[in-house]
Amino acid sequence: MNIVITILLVIVGIIGLFLIMALFLKKEHYVKREIVINAPRQKVFDFLRLLKNQDKFNKWAKADPDRKWEYKGIDGTVGFVISWNGNKKAGEGEKQIMRIIEGKRIETQIRFIKPMATVANVIMETETLSDNQTKVTLINCGTLKYPMNIFIPMAEKNFPKDMDASLTTLKELLEKDEQ
């Protein structure tokens, strides 16, 4: 019986430690990544503004090739919503175009239902570097309430490599079309 009580106390202590740690951690995350694509800005922007194109390059969108997709509205316009329901890795949620600054910026909001209810903002910006070179900036930011903010350090560590992989795939797709 003493062993069971000791195990339960250790578990409660670990949970308590995480809850105390979460009190002192930030509640907002912000990750920004960039890549240069050898293609004209308008071509890059026109591709990015369509959320249906994201399953072609976004690492997270490719997490479950069998996921169920639903679409509401006109892709590439403010208000368009893409919803999904997939395996454990893909989860369930939706992404909505919130604002478009023509040729420059697409602001979306991603709302996860599973595996954890959370909301984040995903912003994609394009900047002309030359007639045939465009800098793409990908930003993921949002807020996690206590005690879920305990996951922010892990997210800020893992997001950059996933975002870089997505941007690299985007670069390959768009530059292949330029050759």
Rank of each mutant, 00 (worst) to 15 (best):
M1V: 06
L9N: 13
I11S: 10
I11F: 14
V12H: 00
I14R: 10
G16W: 12
L17T: 14
L19K: 07
I20L: 15
I20N: 03
A22T: 11
L23A: 10
F24A: 09
L25N: 08
L25G: 09
E28A: 09
E28Y: 07
H29G: 10
V31Q: 07
R33G: 00
E34C: 15
V36P: 12
V36R: 11
I37G: 02
N38L: 06
P40C: 13
K43L: 12
F47T: 01
K52L: 04
K56F: 00
A61K: 06
A63N: 07
A63L: 15
D64S: 03
D66Q: 14
D66R: 10
D66S: 11
K68C: 01
E70Q: 11
Y71C: 10
Y71I: 01
K72H: 15
K72V: 11
G73T: 08
I74Y: 09
D75Y: 06
D75N: 08
G79A: 01
V81K: 12
I82H: 08
S83K: 13
W84P: 04
W84V: 01
N85Y: 07
G86W: 06
G86M: 04
N87P: 05
K89Q: 13
A90H: 03
E92C: 01
G93I: 06
G93A: 02
E94Y: 13
K95H: 05
Q96W: 01
E102C: 08
G103M: 12
K104Q: 13
K104W: 11
K104V: 09
R105H: 08
E107I: 11
R111P: 01
I113K: 15
I113M: 09
K114V: 10
P115K: 10
M116F: 14
A117D: 14
T118H: 14
T118Y: 09
N121F: 13
I123H: 07
M124T: 14
E125G: 04
T126W: 07
T126E: 02
E127V: 14
S130F: 05
D131M: 10
Q133H: 04
T134R: 06
V136P: 00
T137N: 00
I139H: 03
C141S: 14
C141W: 05
G142T: 02
K145P: 01
Y146T: 12
Y146E: 03
I150P: 11
F151I: 15
F151K: 01
A155S: 10
A155K: 10
E156P: 12
E156K: 02
K157V: 08
F159N: 10
P160N: 06
P160H: 03
P160D: 07
K161V: 14
K161L: 10
M163S: 02
A165T: 03
A165K: 02
A165Q: 04
A165E: 05
L167F: 01
E175V: 00
K176L: 12
D177N: 13
D177P: 00
Q179K: 10
Q179H: 11
